[in-house]
Amino acid sequence: MSRTFLMLIRRDLLLAHRQGGGSLLAIAFFVLVVSLFPLGVGPAPEMLERIAAGTIWVAALLSVLLSLDRMFQADLEDGSLDQLALLPIPLALVVLAKTIAHWLTTGLPLTLTAPLLGLLMQLSPDAYGALVAGMLLGTPILSLIGAIGAALTVGVRRGGVLLTLIVTPLYIPILIFGVSAVEAAAQGFAISAHMLFLSALLSGTIVIAPIAAAWSLKLALD
């Protein structure tokens, strides 16, 4: 079972690699959105520093949202979702493997890009650790909740817009904890509470989301 699980992750990584561009596109979008803000609110460093955490997190959230609709859609279209559903392991594990692959190709690259954007946004030097740690814990939750939305809307007409509408409200707690951790760190406060909340959210979501997404996928296959 664990071999199949790892093989599934490798499969999605290989496909992402072959088809190419997925991660780069998310990163480009991430950088682009963040760089709109200095253009929008003006380049005053103190202003940028104040909005840095929020801007980077919101942009990361949008980049993940944008990448979600292909999560199951491509596999549904060519019929390989049938084959994945018929593997001799529970569908929830298939979903979990695909979600991990999704995180490795979007959430992780975004997390690694975030410090660079911190530089552009004049982020306080004390806050980089909190930004990266928060994103390391938070972006997997974005992928997991996103998997539910992607599974609910796979094969649905105009599923992409619907997916955004469904998933965005559920992302709000992660945004709040992620941003407030960065702000706390910038002001020299401890961020352990924020990290604990994010960890708790992650451990809850990692159990519930694959099951809910698997139920939803069954509908698309039915």
Partner: peptide, 26 residues
């Protein structure tokens, strides 16, 4: 199950598709 859709990944070669299938099933 061989459905009316091929269930193949177009980015992979024929042999890769078959290997993947066999390895996923163990």
């Amino acid at each position: 199950y061989a459905g009316h859709q091929d269930g193949l990944k177009t980015a992979l070669s024929a042999a890769e598709n078959l290997d993947l299938f066999a390895r996923l099933r163990g």
